[in-house]
Design a binder for these strands. Structure first.
Lengths: 108, 108
DNA sequence: CCTCTACCTTTGTTATACAAGGTAGCTTAT
DNA sequence: ATAAGCTACCTTGTATAACAAAGGTAGAGG
């Protein structure tokens, strides 16, 4: 995967937001969960990438969070989608399909 | 579309190479043809974007070209895929499917 | 010689990704 | 008690890359 990642990084770029919104829409997660869920996928990433992205999405009011006490250790920030976030995810899905359709039409 | 393009530019970014290889695999084209074929799609772009991309793909030996006389005006450079180019296009298609599958699995 | 077509380069902006470093709460062991 | 260690939060700085806009060369035809 590492070699492929190098070669296709441009394609993957910008899709982390899509992956992240998709994941958060499906599960209530905090950062360590996100890292873990993405680690086995092409979207595997670092904290230093994830936090700024989460901050941006929060500024755009696509995400919300709540503090949740942990059984052991410091409290955790669990993320969820706002209504705007769900709308954005829907739009991204539509855009993704548009790209797919366009690519398939260019191939004729 | 212009508003959506702004919002989703990160997703579109990096896919121009994929779109371009797909198009050139399907048709023998020169730059004006490419601009025209892409103009009605999310991949619409400028000469200043296209030429450097074509140069890079040629350096990577994914593309080849041949000069063809025009009935009127200067000769045109028609592009085609090399064997490596076709292999790359196949790989991109596989990677695209991987991304699609991953996204769909994250949404559960 | 003027215009059109077609080639291509240069420069600046923007966004992403990553690596490294920094703060602080909670638990455990001495 | 208190120090050490773990978990979890987050920021800063750097490299890379795509994109876009503008500018530049040159042949063919009227």
């Amino acid at each position: 995967m590492s070699q492929a990642d190098e070669q296709f990084s441009a394609v993957r770029k910008g899709l982390l937001e899509f992956a992240l919104l998709t994941l958060i829409a499906a599960e209530r997660v905090y950062v360590a969960d996100i890292m873990s869920r993405l680690s086995a996928t092409p979207f595997a990433t670092q904290e230093g990438t994830l936090y700024p992205l989460l901050s941006r999405l929060r500024r755009e009011e696509l995400l919300d969070y709540e503090w949740v006490e942990s059984e052991a250790g410091p409290p955790r920030k669990y993320y969820s989608l706002t209504e705007r976030g769900e709308a954005r995810l829907t739009d991204l899905g539509a855009y993704w399909r548009l790209l797919t359709d366009t690519l398939s039409q260019l191939g004729r």
